[in-house]
Amino acid sequence: MNKTVLITGASSGIGLEFSKIFARKGYNLVLVSQNKENLEKAKSIISMENSKVQIVTIAQNLATPSAPKVIFDYTKQNSINIDILVNNAGIQVYGNFCDVDIEDTINLMYINMFAMTKLTRLYVDGMIKRGEGKILNIASTGAFQPCPLNSAYCASKAFVLHLSEGIGEELKGTGVTVTTLCPGATRTNFAKRANIEGIKIFKGKLLDASRVAEIGYKALMKGKSVVITGFSNKLVAESVRFIPRSIVTKLGMNMMKE
């Protein structure tokens, strides 16, 4: 019987590319996203090339506190065991913290942090009982340093990284692994939706979403703890620890300016 993967933020970008990879590998899919129409389009695209794969779509806004439990209850009621959980959903809020609508920042925290945490907690028990399972949490190279004009986003991704590393160590010996994927700026519609296409960090050479997903998939299958996409991204992330914090924030401000 095919194993099943649940992917949040699955209707576009890196999430859609993950969906395609897992479908090609023969996994059944539970695809979660806020937009039902986009989910159905994603399902249609994947089904055309992978007719034997079963695909379930769940339209939920992860900024809603009850959404993770709604998703979990649906899979439980329909006897769908989740073998792999991919917490990919995330949003960006750009600008000075004091200028951004506080509700936008709170929504970011719910989607990037709270939903990921709750879904992980809800599904990990079943994985432990079965003695196997994999969790992939999507952080960012922004998780390695504070970044002005992007403060809440980078802080939320630092939370993802640190939580994932911590529980990954706790789960050793259970058969369950936790992998954190830390992409740099990637060629998707993410920047357009966040209205940050004009900032410096998106002006360089970017990896395609398909390549980022491929790197993440391979790391997940190998049970790696943390993977950073791209050599230059690795270099920046690793070098931050050797630079005075006051300089790190200045460099971050420069990178995030238009």
Rank of each mutant, 00 (worst) to 15 (best):
F159Q: 00
F159R: 02
V160T: 08
V160R: 01
V160K: 02
V160C: 03
L161H: 09
L161T: 06
H162E: 13
H162W: 09
H162S: 15
L163I: 08
L163Q: 11
S164N: 08
S164E: 03
S164R: 03
E165I: 02
E165M: 09
G166Y: 12
G166W: 13
G166Q: 13
I167V: 10
G168D: 04
E169M: 11
E169R: 14
E170R: 08
E170V: 09
E170D: 14
L171W: 05
L171G: 10
K172M: 05
K172F: 02
G173S: 07
T174M: 06
T174P: 02
T174A: 10
T174Y: 04
T174H: 04
G175W: 00
G175F: 02
G175C: 04
G175I: 04
V176C: 02
V176N: 00
V178Q: 01
V178N: 02
V178C: 06
V178W: 00
V178S: 03
V178R: 01
V178F: 02
T179N: 07
T179M: 03
T179S: 06
T179D: 05
T180Q: 06
T180H: 07
L181E: 12
L181F: 14
L181I: 13
C182E: 08
C182G: 10
C182V: 10
P183W: 12
G184R: 10
A185P: 15
A185W: 02
A185D: 15
A185V: 08
A185G: 15
A185R: 00
T186P: 05
T186H: 13
T186V: 12
T186W: 12
T186R: 11
T186Q: 11
R187L: 07
R187K: 10
T188A: 11
N189A: 09
N189H: 05
N189E: 09
F190M: 08
F190H: 01
A191H: 14
A191K: 01
A191P: 06
K192N: 12
K192A: 14
R193S: 14
R193L: 15
A194E: 06
A194W: 01
A194N: 07
N195M: 12
I196G: 03
I196T: 14
I196A: 12
I196R: 13
I196V: 13
E197T: 15
E197M: 09
E197L: 11
E197H: 00
G198R: 12
G198P: 00
G198E: 13
I199L: 05
I199N: 11
I199F: 04
K200S: 15
K200E: 14
I201T: 12
I201E: 11
I201C: 06
I201A: 14
F202I: 04
F202V: 03
F202C: 08
F202M: 13
F202N: 12
K203N: 11
K203R: 11
K203L: 03
G204A: 05
G204H: 02
G204K: 07
K205V: 09
K205L: 07
K205I: 06
K205A: 07
K205C: 00
L206A: 06
L207F: 13
L207I: 00
L207Y: 14
L207R: 06
L207S: 11
L207E: 11
D208P: 02
D208E: 15
A209R: 00
